[in-house]
Amino acid sequence: MSENEPIKRVSLVCSKGGLDEVYPSLIMANGARMEGIEASIFFTFFGLNAIVKKTHKNLKVATVGNAALNLAMPMLKMPITMPFPTLIGAIPGVSNFATWLMKNEMEKLDVPPVDEFLEMCDDAGVEIYACKMTVDMFKLTIDDFVPQVKGIMTVGEFYEKSAGAQIIFT
């Protein structure tokens, strides 16, 4: 590939299922399509939460063991340097609150909720797949997934599909 050649295809791997861990893949895939770049997302391990019908609307921001939460402090009118104690994060409702806060901020930026975002990506031509090995591990079937999921693939098929693409793991 020559140095300044535009990117033609991207293949994203989404391996984590927190709200803040799923948004980057969706934003990058959709953003690729907006630039005329072909895009697909391969959901694997806990990332599958984002495409399972029973869970995709309820993704959460983790407030325990998340040492980077200080970054969200300005949303509460507190300094960005203030740490967020993990013990407070363990109090029931705190994760729900942090999740609500992020969803609220995202809405202000015109970023849709995950279910609507999956529809938007699909309409834009993003191909969405689930990873066979983790689908088997979590005892899931194709019927458990939102209709935007095009299929269940092995890692080999994923690499085949990704021919000529930049692979981005998140």
Binding site: M34, E35, G36, D110, P112, E116, M120, D123, A124, G125
Partner: peptide, 27 residues
């Protein structure tokens, strides 16, 4: 507008938008 706003308010949905302006609708 964002693609989302176009989809919801313009009367042309996302799928059609990509067909009308292939290779980067908003741009």
């Amino acid at each position: 507008p964002s693609i989302r706003k176009l989809n919801k308010q313009s009367g042309v949905n996302t799928k059609e938008l990509y067909q009308l302006f292939p290779g980067g609708p908003a741009k």
